[in-house]
Write a protein that binds this DNA or RNA. Structure first.
Lengths: 219, 219, 219, 219
DNA sequence: GATGAATGAGCCTTCATTCAT
DNA sequence: AATGAATGAAGGCTCATTCAT
């Protein structure tokens, strides 16, 4: 598992001044710089507005170098998505609430840290890319659905089923609309990233409220 | 105020074949065609990806004609936003629940039709434009906040206050996070417009569920 | 029959300073200037070595203008070939020697003026393009074969058949190798255009000699 | 002088896998591979269209290695010409027909094998390079004139002189236009290499016909 | 007012050449 | 000596904008 991928909050790692000549580690470093720089540029300007020259400048490499790694701007975009989408929702497996905890508590325990991670890493940027470019680049939607959407929906639905079996939920609302639980996630990403960056809401907090609404905490 | 604005579901109005000579009504019609064509193009391709030539072609006018109405592509974009943003949330005033209805019922009665209108008109496209271009065009965010966001937040917060006064709400959750009630709106627009266009969720339905969560309907 | 096509010896026609706005005749003129400039550039530098910027500069138009007429450099090349190849061998129909002249005299009378025309017009340049780019651009070879090669071969073979019927030829050499009669044509074009431009041979003279060899002139 | 030069019909010699460390013979072999690969590339794509990376790939060496042998692409091109032009017309000395043979028979005996060699070796490719690149690279024309053209012209003229002295020729046609005898050579190279590769003519056969025309064989 | 040919700055991409390994 | 990652000038092409008709 490459730990190079988007977990370092916010900015791309620095980069020693370029030298010539081969070396596996330098190649990996160049590739990583390029991908981080490209993510920044794509997030800030969208695909059409991004400029290869700005990307390479951000990455501290020459224009031509980018093309050794990705043959076109589109391919670079796909590479960025592939690189940063995968770890989006890492850490969510089949829901297995402990016997001594309610399903609500289990969801709080498992989802809120994920939300926090998303908020403090680049992953939110990747998600916003899906919003901005999904219309024109089907592959980015497919990647998002595969890596994030489908998995989380399955996770929530399975948890809802357990909750109904245990009697913690008395209606099938969450089974019918599992996405309801994640609505605050998108809301927070949109508000913080676009609408009111000056007064960011906490996605984790909103998510907690939403879980409380669905699984009222025992007082 | 032209009533030509974005209420006709989906497509731009046709355009009578050109005739020579000026005429105020023809000018207004040309302007409207241009704006609708531009909205389509901006929604489909984003600002950077939109092409003036495609816009004028869609509008059925010559390239140079667009420049008689808006001096630059950016100005046209602003014009589009100004034109289609205003009526986004029209019909929402100060919340005045009737004496014989609960605040929850009042919210259901006032918000769900608005949601339905948004879903079936171009307004959802305009909202998605905010997502895609907000980063690069502050004015579009300002417009959205002014015309939609601030108004709805105020509306919900006022309603929440009434509900607390009446004892219909026992906690201040909605007062602290009024946006919670709109989370399903964004969710539905994103799912339907981008993520799962093949199996669109009903935003109105999700909104109803969310209101039910916050204001449990009396049996 | 456009007389615009390569008959004016050597250089492209001058061109009034560009103005904007439509006008059929100006469009035709621009197109012609472009084609002539492109021919010059392709002949001098080959396809790969030709530069669009040099072509448009020669033509006295802006870079983008060329792309209104031909979508790519390759398409422009094809356009050049189509434009200038057609009239290469114009004026050769079915061989019909008069009763009172020998076939040799008929060939002298019909072929030498064509040769002279080729030598003094741009047509020789077009032929050299076939040599230089035929390998990489099959269409240019096809065009040459269609417009020039096949026609002349047929012409010569038909003449040879008549000559044998009349008893003017006693062997079938020319029937088997009709191209033999044109060998001096390529030779002259190569020598004059490439090998010894400082001491150009007359292709017409060489051709006359070759015809004399095959049809010895009666003394 | 490496005997590696262009006589092996068609393809470049293979190349043993690289081993480390210097060695004069390896250097020579590398150089030869490079030159053959470069000839192929230049013949196929012309100078401007040729790519150093493709040449080194064909040669089985690294990009940088080529630059140890030739400082620039142009220098490599000159090297290719120098290497493969020299043996173009090897084997033609001063014309010395035996006393018992006619000059025509002598020419048939000396020229036809040369023609055959040219046709079956890479030399025809080199000649076509002269056609394609002569305009832009004077040195290639100079080399061709020095190594091939001037020699053959002298040879033919001297033979013509002898033939006139012997009374085998009654006019000075060949003296005035000695190149006439080689016209079929270019014709065959052009037809076979470019115009009608699917139905190649035999250059040797055409040359024989041409000599027969000038020196009618005694029956 | 409307038109669309023309403009040219700017972007993506290529490829000859370099140089640390 | 050989390697191939890196460089960056240069070329093909696009598209917002202009203006003569």
């Amino acid at each position: 598992m490459t730990d190079e991928t988007g977990d370092n909050p916010r900015e791309a790692p620095p980069r020693k001044p370029r030298t010539r000549g081969p070396s596996p580690e330098k190649t990996a470093q160049t590739r990583s710089c390029l991908l981080h720089a490209a993510l920044d540029e794509f997030v800030e300007n969208g695909f059409a507005g991004a400029q290869m020259s700005r990307i390479t400048e951000r990455a501290g490499i020459a224009k031509g170098t980018a093309y050794r790694y990705f043959p076109t701007k589109s391919a670079l975009f796909e590479g960025v998505v592939a690189e940063f989408m995968a770890p989006l929702i890492s850490g969510i497996g089949p829901p297995e609430p402990r016997a001594d905890e309610s399903v609500g508590d289990f969801l709080r325990r498992s989802l809120i840290p994920v939300m926090t991670t998303i908020e403090t890493s680049r992953r939110a940027d990747v998600a916003r890319l899906v919003l901005a470019e999904g219309r024109n680049f089907p592959f980015i939607v497919q990647a998002y659905r595969r890596e994030a959407y489908d998995r989380t929906i399955d996770f929530v639905r399975a948890a809802a089923r357990i909750a109904m079996e245990r009697g913690e939920l008395t209606d099938d609302r969450l089974l019918r609309h599992p996405q309801l639980i994640f609505a605050p996630l998108w809301l927070a990403m949109i508000e913080t990233g676009i609408l009111v960056p000056d007064a960011p809401v906490s996605g984790a907090e909103l998510l907690a409220e939403q879980i409380d609404l669905i699984f009222p905490p025992s007082r």
